Simulated assay, not measured.
Amino acid sequence: MSSQFTVEKTQHPKTKPDQQNLGFGKHFTDHMFLMNYTAGEGWHDARIVPYAPLSLDPAAMVFHYGQAVFEGLKAYKTEGGRVLLFRPDQNLERLNISNERLSIPQIDEALVLEGIKELVRTDADWIPTAEGTSLYIRPFIIATDAALGVHPSPQYLLIVILSPVGAYYPEGLKPVKINVESEYVRAVRGGTGVAKTAGNYAASLRAQEEAEKQGYAQVLWLDGVEKKYIEEVGSMNVFFKINGEVVTPALNGSILSGVTRRSIIQILQDKEIPVVERRISIEELYEASVNGTLEEAFGTGTAAVISPIGELNWEDKQITINKGEIGQVSQELYDTLTGIQNGKVKDTFGWTFEV
C-alpha cells in the first residue's frame, strides 16, 4: 500500500451481483478513491473510502459550467488468478490531456495509478471471472468550487469508482446497424473533441436517441465543417477494411485518441495487415460498397473493445457490409486484444500491468 494515501475499509459490504447478468455500469463495488485539489495547495488528501454518495454545494461549478473529464479502463482476472490492468498509463496520460483542454490542474499520473491499483486490490473479490466479463474502472474529475462565474474552478475532486461488467452489447459480436448522422455534429477542430469531457457525450444524445427510434444501434459522425469526412461511430473510433487495407480516420484535432484505437493499429502492424490513418469521406465509403471493395467495418473502444458494423444508412442508401456478418480481421483483432487483456495471449507489447 502506498504511504501517500490512506485506506478506510467498509463496515457494510454489499451483496455481489450474479456474474451472468451484470449488464454494463449497473453495479458498483464497496470502495472508491478520492483526491482533492485546492489552489495554492495542489492535489492532496488521496484516500480510499467506502463507496457512498457525494455531498456537493448546489453552486458547485461542475453543475453550471461543465468542467468535468473522465476516463475508462478495465481490470481482468486471469485463469491463474493474476489481476491485470490494460494500458492504464495511456488512460492517465490522456486524462491529463483532457485536463489541459478544460483548464483543470494536471494530476500526478504515477500517484493516481498507485491509487487505482490499491483500489482494485481492495475490491479484488469483485472482479468477475465469467467469459467476457471484467472490472470497469472509471476515473473522473469535477469542479467543486461553490461560485457562479465563468472561469476555471480553484477546487476539484478526483474520484475513481469500479463496476463489474458484462459485455457492453448484450448481443456480443453480432454486427450492428448504424445511421450516418447528417444534421448534428460531434465536434470541430479547436473544440473539445480531443478531450474526454462530459459535455461531448451530452451533445451526442439527441442524435443517438433519434437513431434508436429508427432501429439503429449508433450513429456515424461526420466532420463538423463539411459534413463529409468520417470521424467516429457513437463514442468509438472507427475502422474500415477496403480492398485489403484497413483505414481509420486520422487524428485531426476533433477526434479522440483512443487507447483501443492505438492498440488495434499496433496489432495490425504486428500482423503485417496494411493499415493507414487518413481522411476518408462517406462518398468514398459508399463507392467502395458499390464496387465491392468495402470488406469490413468496426468500432473500437474500452467498453466494447470491437463492435462490428453490418449496415450503414446514409441518405436512405443502405450500405451492407460483409453480408451483415462479422469479418475475419474484426474477429481476429477481438480475439487477440481480449486475449492479451485477460492473459490468454502472450503480451509481447508490454501493455498489461499486474496489480
Rank of each mutant, 00 (worst) to 15 (best):
Y169F: 15
E171I: 02
E171G: 00
L173R: 13
L173H: 13
K174T: 12
P175T: 14
P175D: 14
V176Q: 04
K177I: 09
I178K: 01
S182D: 13
E183R: 15
E183V: 13
Y184M: 05
Y184H: 12
V185N: 07
R186N: 02
R186D: 03
A187R: 08
V188K: 10
V188L: 05
R189N: 07
R189S: 09
G190Q: 13
T192E: 03
T192D: 03
G193T: 01
G193M: 00
G193Q: 01
A195C: 09
A195T: 02
K196L: 11
K196P: 15
T197F: 08
T197G: 10
G199T: 14
N200I: 10
N200R: 11
N200A: 10
S204R: 11
S204K: 11
L205H: 09
E209G: 01
E209I: 11
E209M: 12
E210D: 10
E212S: 14
K213P: 08
K213A: 13
G215D: 09
Y216L: 05
Q218C: 07
Q218V: 05
Q218A: 09
V219W: 03
V219T: 05
L220K: 02
L220F: 04
L220I: 07
W221M: 06
L222H: 00
D223R: 01
G224E: 03
V225C: 07
K227R: 15
K227A: 14
K227N: 14
Y229W: 15
I230H: 08
I230N: 09
E232R: 10
V233S: 02
V233L: 04
V233C: 06
V233K: 00
G234L: 02
